[in-house]
Design a protein around this nucleic acid. Structure first.
Length: 254
DNA sequence: GGGTTTCAGCCCTTTACGTCA
DNA sequence: ACTGACGTAAAGGGCTGAAAC
C-alpha cells in the first residue's frame, strides 16, 4: 500500500473556534505504536485466505463505490457499517442522520439487495490497518484538525470514508487530551506530595519551637509586637536577640 | 443591521467490538 | 474455552460559529 500524501496546504480554519478547538501544544507518541491489528482487510493485497477477523468478503455487497462526501472507493466492511449506521441514524432522525441523508440515500439506492441481510443487525466495528493508523498518526502530527479538503484527501488515500477520518481525528484528539490530563494529574499529585512534606516539616519545627519555649521561658518576655526578622537566618527573633547580633537562636514567641 | 434557521464541526460521553493476558 | 481489562471505532447529543434567509 502506497502511502504518499501531502497535506501541504494549511487548513483554511486550522483552529477556528478559540474556545473549542484547543491547541494542546504538544505531540505525544502513539499509545500503541507497536500494536499490529490482526484483523485483515480485503482491500489490502495480502489479506486473502487468512480466515481471521471479519469475513466481510462473504457479505454480498456489490458496491465498493462510496457516495459519502465523494470518497472514491471504500472497503467492503466500511460499506457495510456505513450503510447500517446511516440507516439507523436516518431511522432515528438524529442530527448526523440528517446530515448524511443524501449520501446514505444514494448508498441505499445502490444497495437495495442487501436490506434483508443488514436490517436490525448491530454495527460491525472495523479496525484500521497498521498502515492506515500510522498514516493517520503522521497526519495528526502535522495538524490535529483537518479541513474538508484534507479530510477528503486522507480518506481517498487510505480508502476510508471521510466520516471515518473525521471520527479518527476526534478520537485521537480525545486520547491526546486524556493523556495530557493524566500527565497534569501526576504533576499536581507530586506538587501535593511536596507541599504535604513541607507542611509536615513546618509542623515539626513548630512543635520543636513550642517545646523550646516551655523549656526556656526567660527568652519569652518580649511581646510579639517586638519581634523582628533576623536578616541572616530569616527567622523571627526577639529584639534583644536581634540587637545582640542574633546568634541564630530559634527564639520565637508563638 | 439584527433575529432566526440551517448546517457543519467539534467535544464529551457512552456503547460495542476486537484483542490480549 | 472462558473471562475481564483495555483500546478504540463509532453513535448520539449538546454547543457553537458561519452562512443564508
Amino acid at each position: 500500500m502506497e502511502l504518499a500524501l501531502s497535506l501541504g496546504e494549511q487548513p483554511s480554519k486550522p483552529f477556528p473556534k478559540s474556545s473549542r478547538s484547543r491547541d494542546l501544544g504538544f505531540c505525544m507518541a502513539p499509545a500503541d505504536e507497536n500494536r499490529v491489528p490482526s484483523v485483515r482487510f480485503p482491500w489490502l493485497t495480502d489479506n486473502h485466505g487468512d480466515g481471521r477477523g471479519l469475513d466481510v468478503n462473504r457479505l454480498s455487497l456489490a458496491v465498493a463505490e462510496e457516495s459519502d462526501e465523494g470518497a472514491a472507493v471504500s472497503s467492503p466492511n466500511s460499506a457495510v457499517s456505513s450503510f447500517q449506521m446511516d440507516f439507523g441514524r436516518i431511522r432515528n432522525g438524529s442530527k448526523r442522520g440528517k446530515r448524511d441523508l443524501k449520501g446514505a440515500e444514494a448508498e441505499r439506492a445502490s444497495n437495495d439487495d442487501d436490506d434483508d441481510e443488514l436490517n436490525g443487525s448491530a454495527r460491525k466495528k472495523l479496525r484500521l490497518s497498521k498502515e492506515q493508523s500510522a498514516f493517520l498518526e503522521e497526519s495528526f502530527k502535522e495538524h490535529s484538525t483537518l479541513n474538508p479538503k484534507q479530510k477528503l484527501a486522507l480518506a481517498k488515500q487510505l480508502n476510508l470514508r471521510p466520516r471515518q477520518v473525521e471520527v479518527w481525528f476526534q478520537n485521537r484528539r480525545a486520547r491526546t487530551k486524556l493523556k495530557q490530563t493524566k500527565v497534569d494529574c501526576e504533576y499536581l499529585k507530586r506538587c501535593c506530595e511536596t507541599l504535604t512534606e513541607e507542611n509536615k516539616r513546618l509542623q515539626k519545627e513548630l512543635q520543636e519551637l513550642r517545646a523550646l519555649k516551655i523549656s526556656q521561658p526567660f527568652y519569652m518576655h518580649s511581646p510579639a509586637t517586638t519581634l523582628t526578622m533576623c536578616p541572616s537566618c530569616e527567622r523571627v527573633a526577639t529584639a534583644k536577640a536581634s540587637a545582640a547580633g542574633c546568634q541564630h537562636q530559634r527564639i520565637l514567641l508563638l
